[in-house]
Design a protein around this nucleic acid. Structure first.
Lengths: 137, 137
DNA sequence: ACTTGCTTCTACAGTTACTGTAGAATGTAG
DNA sequence: CTACATTCTACAGTAACTGTAGAAGCAAGT
C-alpha cells in the first residue's frame, strides 16, 4: 500500500488534469471539502481527494452541471434508496443530451448547405449572408 | 409599400423573438447601430433594423459567436472580394460544429451505458456513481 | 382631469463555470 | 544564499445574455 501520497495543489492538478485555480474554485463553492493544510498553510490532498475530484471532472466531462453533481454526490452519500433518484438524474440528463444532439445535427446540415452556396461559384455570387439572414426554418 | 412601419423596442422584440434587454445589449456592444429615438427618448426601429436583428439571431442560432457575427457583418459591408473570407469563416465554424457533434455523440453513448447499469437491477446495486468516478476513457 | 397599468428608460447586479492577474510568502535547487 | 517555482488570498474578467430597481412616459377608462 502506498501511504503518504500527499500531494500539493499543483500535484493534484496535474494528476487530474485540472487547473489549480479550478480546484480552489471547487473548494470555494463547496464542491470539494476544505483541504487539509500544512503548517505553512498550503493545501495537501490524499487519495480520497484525487478520487473525488476525478469524479467531478468526469461528470463535468459528461456534461453534468455543477448543481447536478452536487445532487449526485449528496445522493451518493445518502441512503441506498436514493439510487432510483440517481438513475433518474442520469436519464433526465441523457434526454437533454439527445435533444442537444438533434438540434446540433440540424444546425450542422443547415450550415453545410449555406457554406456550399459559395463553392465553385464566382466570388461575386456569394449568398452566405443572405442565406443566414433568410433564417433556417 | 408599407411605409411608416416603425416599431418600438417591444415590437421589434416580438417580431424577431428577442428579449427587449437583449436588443439593448446588442446596441451597447455595437452589434446593432444606435437606434433612432422619439422626442421622448424611446427607440424606434424600421425594416432595416428588423432585417439586421433577424440576421444576428439566425447566426446565433447557427452557433456563430458574437465576434464571428461582427466579422460576418463587417465582411458583408466590405468589398466583394471578401466573399472568400466569409466562406472560410463558415467552413471553419462547420468544422467546430462537427467536432462538437462527435464529442457529444461519444458522451451520449457513455452516459447511456452508465444509466443502463441501473436498469432492472436491485436498487442496492446501483453503480452509476462508481461508473462516473471510474472515468470515461 | 385623473388614475391605473403597461412600456420604456438607464444603470447595474447576477448567471455559469471557470480563467487570469496582482502581490506577497514560502519551498526547492544549485 | 540566491534564483526560480509554487502557493497563498482576493478580486477582475470572460460569453452572452437575463433580471431587477426606480423613474418616467403613454394610452385607455371613468
Amino acid at each position: 500500500m502506498a501511504r503518504d501520497t500527499r500531494l500539493p495543489i499543483g500535484g493534484l492538478a496535474k494528476r487530474t488534469g485540472t487547473k489549480v485555480n479550478t480546484i480552489r474554485f471547487y473548494e470555494d463553492i463547496g464542491l470539494l471539502p476544505c483541504a487539509a493544510r500544512t503548517a505553512s498553510g498550503r493545501r495537501t490532498y490524499g487519495d480520497e481527494d484525487v478520487g473525488r475530484l476525478a469524479f467531478i471532472r468526469n461528470a463535468r466531462g459528461l456534461g453534468f452541471s455543477i448543481d447536478e453533481i452536487r445532487s449526485l454526490t449528496a445522493l451518493a452519500l445518502g441512503p441506498a434508496q436514493d439510487c432510483a433518484e440517481i438513475r433518474a438524474l442520469g436519464a433526465r440528463h441523457l434526454l437533454d443530451v439527445d435533444e442537444k444532439l438533434e438540434r446540433m445535427a440540424r444546425l450542422r446540415a443547415e450550415l453545410a448547405r449555406i457554406v456550399q452556396l459559395c463553392d465553385g461559384g464566382p466570388v461575386s455570387d456569394c449568398r452566405v449572408i443572405e442565406a443566414i439572414a433568410a433564417g433556417t426554418a
